[in-house]
Design a protein around this nucleic acid. Structure first.
Length: 718
DNA sequence: AGCACGCCGACT
DNA sequence: GTCGGCGTGCTC
């Protein structure tokens, strides 16, 4: 029997399958098994991707695996990993890496398997206690503890000793290191569902009972109780003997996302996220694989959870950009989820208050239009910032007045500022020059407390200069407002009310993110100023005011998704406000009050926004009406990148279907000392476009000019 | 990726 | 005559 194998290396040029002859004692090896194989001069771990009776190679060229390693992955998941590699133009090894158990022990070295020891005293043991047998103090104490069933802990060594003397019997059981279940203000209660919630659950359950898979978009305004729908759907899946994956956006909010599932399902859930220790992650993986846990909750890799009989995949906050992976393979968890559901003939439920145009168009819609508390969404006021003198400060008079009202009457306010630091530019009034990062083409950001200029793309930082390095003038202006400055301005506006700042700087240290949220929660009247993260993953009932200072900052991004993002940002922030009896208000400061994204978010009109946005996308031939593939090349030397980009473009163009467009090579901003070029393919169908890029990237003729040039492929970039 | 092979110039 | 630079190609 021949095992077809993919070696686990990072090399792009190296791809199998490679054939190995399986000796008789490896008859259990199948797709997904992990082998240690001789490979050239090395020994290397490799995943079995196929089993065949014969090989095309002559027998004398076939080698045998050295060993079958214990930890592999189910065949189904191995195939999913290969699908990801293919779909996103990566390598088989990188796709397979995603579906293997985390932190495999080095080949040959075995993971420590923790066990629980339970001891029971034997007849001989009781007799020994009665007398006649010599017992050490500790052995006697252990035996007495067991005889009296006091549950007293005894040393493992002592118990082993007693076992060899026949005085106790030991039972060893695999123990699992479980991550602590965090529950912040979560009750395990089971509220009665609203009419809309019941209708949604019924549709999902009907999907579970249908022979083929179904895909739903659960579009629910903030506070409409989407989580209860997930929980009820998950229960229905479990009752039918099927397992559940619940995806939540990112690590910052995992504890809260997890806790309601934990409260409902207890030991049946396993959590997979990056903050787990290696041992915890591995043990959770084992519990999923063994069937001890039937629900997996987590961000990122949770979509690859080794669950059997998958019935339901929930994608919470499906609009969230963190579902798109940054590293290679740049897969989209939402698409992997759809694929898994399709293969399992299960049900996908993507829930959000601000659906993506893709989901709005493609998925079957379930609507939650009312809040469970019966309140209505807070009114949103758009404040036109055009024509205002920059020296008047970052706050609109209305904003100042509302903040002052919060200070006076109590309650909480959230202020979203999309940049961290004091100000995003340091510019010279005399010569107009802006201080830039030496290795990136971006302006340095003033951080006042640290008294440094910092680059937000690399590690560069320098002292704030006293005079212009170009002309020597001392009139340096700190232009624009970041979270640091906003917090100071707002602190002045609200008098003695505490102002908390929540951004990547203040939340950098472990536990700080949660600590700041907790302090904000505990404070009576308070303001929380911060970046995007202030609008995510919490639900404080006494927030009476939400403000976004520069709502069109994200709109000015040269990207066709900037409208979608701006809409989601404003709508999500609006949802944070007015969840208590005092109601709330929302202020949106902007230079573009009439932009559809801002105007429809102010009306809480997601369907209206999506209709317009889809029209625009259709006219411009953008996703979801076309597919995009982005290829980026980066290297320190501009000449080499140009050459590599030109050759890559040529190779791709040669394979592209006639209706597809290839745009570029276009220059991108230099980052971390590397020049970058971009190619963009716009095609009616994704498959042929990806295939053209794949064959170009794999072509051996390109390999030489690409040496030293980093190439990354992004299918459907966000 | 790693590693060996091999072709060429610079040294003992 | 030999050492080592790296360009090229292979790994079941």
């Amino acid at each position: 029997v021949i095992a077809q194998v993919e070696p686990l290396t990072t090399a792009r040029a190296l791809r199998g399958p490679f054939d190995y002859r399986l000796p008789a004692h490896m008859e259990n090896v199948g797709v997904g098994s992990l082998l240690l194989v001789p490979f050239g001069r090395q020994r290397i771990a490799a995943v079995v991707t196929g089993v065949a009776p014969t090989s095309e190679l002559p027998p004398e060229r076939l080698a045998e695996p050295i060993a079958a390693l214990e930890a592999g992955t189910p065949a189904e998941l191995a195939r999913l990993g290969l699908w990801v590699a293919d779909e996103y133009c990566s390598t088989p090894a990188r796709g397979l890496e995603l579906v293997l158990p985390p932190r495999r022990p080095r080949p040959g070295q075995r993971a420590r398997v923790p066990t629980d020891l339970t001891a029971e005293i034997t007849e001989a043991g009781r007799a020994a206690l009665a007398g006649g047998v010599r017992l050490g103090d500790r052995q006697r104490a252990a035996l007495e503890g067991l005889a009296a069933a006091t549950g007293e802990m005894a040393d493992r060594a002592v118990l082993r000793r007693l076992e060899t003397r026949g005085l106790v019997v030991l039972r060893e059981e695999r123990s699992f290191r479980r991550p602590e279940a965090v529950s912040v203000g979560v009750s395990g209660g089971r509220p009665e569902l609203t009419v809309e919630q019941r209708a949604s659950v019924a549709a999902i359950v009907a999907g579970l009972d249908a022979p083929e898979g179904r895909e739903f978009l659960l579009h629910g305004i903030t506070g409409s109780g989407k989580t209860e729908v997930y929980l009820a759907a998950a229960e229905a899946a479990l009752e039918r003997g099927r397992s559940v994956i619940a995806l939540v956006p990112e690590i910052g909010l995992t504890p809260q996302g997890v806790s309601r599932f934990a409260a409902r399902f207890g030991d049946r859930i396993a959590v997979l996220h990056s903050k787990l220790s290696a041992g915890e992650r591995r043990d959770e993986w084992e519990r999923l694989r063994s069937g001890a846990a039937r629900v997996c909750v987590g961000p990122r890799s949770a979509v690859f959870a080794p669950l059997r009989d998958l019935g339901l995949v929930v994608v919470d906050e499906e609009h969230d950009a963190s579902y798109k992976q940054e590293g290679d393979p740049r897969y989209d968890e939402r698409d992997v989820a759809r694929r898994r559901v399709e293969l399992a003939a299960g049900v996908l439920v993507a829930g959000t208050a601000t659906p993506r145009p893709e989901s709005w168009l493609r998925l079957e819609r379930l609507e939650l239009t009312t809040r469970v508390d019966g309140l209505s969404l807070p009114p949103v006021e758009v404040l036109d910032m055009r024509g205002r003198d920059g020296r008047a400060g970052p706050l609109h008079p209305r904003t100042s007045a509302e903040l002052a009202a919060v200070a006076e009457h109590g309650g909480k306010a959230i202020v979203l500022v999309n940049r961290r630091g004091w100000s995003p530019f340091l510019s010279c009034r005399a010569c107009g020059s802006v201080r830039e990062c030496p290795s990136c083409e971006v302006s340095l950001v003033v951080h006042r407390a640290a008294e440094r200029l910092r680059c937000h793309h690399c590690a560069h930082s320098e002292p704030v200069p006293r005079e212009c390095p170009d002309c020597g003038s001392v009139t340096l202006a700190q232009v624009g407002t970041g979270t640091e400055r906003a917090a100071e301005v707002i602190a002045a506006a609200v008098g003695g009310v505490p102002v908390f700042r929540l951004d990547a700087d203040t939340a950098a240290r472990k536990g700080q993110h949660a600590a700041i949220l907790k302090r904000f929660e505990a404070a009576g009247a308070a303001v929380m100023v911060g970046t995007q993260m202030v609008a995510k993953g919490h639900d404080f009932p006494d927030v009476v005011l939400s403000v976004v200072l520069d709502a069109d900052a994200s709109l000015r991004f040269p990207d066709f998704r900037s409208e979608e993002r701006t809409f989601a940002m404003v709508a999500q922030l609006a949802g944070r406000s007015g969840r208590g009896p005092r109601g709330g208000r929302v202020l949106v400061q902007t230079l573009a009050p009439d932009a559809p994204a801002i105007a429809s978010a102010a009306r809480h009109d997601a369907p209206g926004f999506l209709a317009g946005e889809l029209e625009r996308r259709r006219a411009l031939r953008y996703p979801p009406f076309a597919s995009l593939v982005r290829v980026e090349l980066a290297a320190p030397d501009p000449g080499r990148v140009d050459q590599a980009a030109a050759l890559t473009a040529e190779a791709i163009a040669a394979n592209l279907p006639p209706d597809a467009d290839l745009l570029g090579p276009a220059p991108r901003l230099r980052l971390r000392g590397r020049e970058r070029r971009q190619l963009l393919i716009k095609a009616a169908e994704r498959g042929p476009a990806v295939a053209a890029v794949r064959s170009a990237v794999e072509a051996s003729g390109l390999r030489r000019p690409l040496r030293g040039v980093a190439l990354s492929v992004d299918v459907e970039p966000q």
